[in-house]
Amino acid sequence: MGQKVILLADDDSDDREMFHEALELVDNNISCYSTLNGSELLEKIHTLEKAPNLIFLDMNMPVMNGWQCLEILKRDERYRDIPVIIISTSSHQKDMETSIQLGAVCYLVKPNDFRDLIEVLKVFTENLCTGIKNAIANLQLSNPKIIFT
């Protein structure tokens, strides 16, 4: 399939750094581009040579939050089929349900443990091209406290 691309929008620099470190340990052949909010992600996606394989959107960001960005992505025929994962520190059921209703493939409560983040990213990246929805469903069964589908 060639080079895999992931986009991440998260306003927290520590979370972005941890995400990149974990992703590099999981698969250093994936290009990951980060932005500080949904608006920047929408600008960045237009500059890429190919559409990303997966998008992670923090729910709470300034300028444009993850839900607002998700709504725009899902209305655009160029990007509506890209799997989007909403990430947040919130574990409120309503936030999870809203994310899924807006078109996210799942809602990920940001893991506090670096090893947990590595394991989650490993599942996502290993299944980018072969069925991420099934992999997410299996992950949700094994770790229902951080994955909601």
Rank of each mutant, 00 (worst) to 15 (best):
L36Y: 11
A51K: 13
I136Q: 05
E43S: 12
L141H: 15
E24V: 14
F19N: 04
I82F: 15
E119M: 14
K44G: 00
A9L: 11
P83N: 07
I55V: 14
R16L: 15
I87G: 01
H46S: 09
I118P: 00
W67Q: 03
L41A: 07
Q101R: 13
F148E: 08
N127G: 01
K4N: 13
R75C: 15
R80I: 10
L117V: 04
M96H: 09
L141Y: 14
E43G: 04
P111C: 01
F114K: 00
Q93A: 10
N143C: 03
H20E: 15
E49K: 14
T130H: 02
F148M: 08
F114V: 02
S34T: 07
D81M: 11
A51S: 12
L102Q: 06
E43L: 12
I30M: 13
I45N: 02
D81P: 04
F56I: 00
I82K: 09
L108T: 01
N138Y: 10
A135N: 03
R115V: 13
V123K: 13
E24D: 14
K50Q: 12
L41H: 03
N29D: 14
Y107V: 06
T125G: 03
I82M: 08
V105K: 08
L73Q: 04
S88K: 06
F19R: 00
N127K: 07
S90L: 11
D58I: 04
L36G: 06
G66D: 10
E21W: 15
K74Q: 07
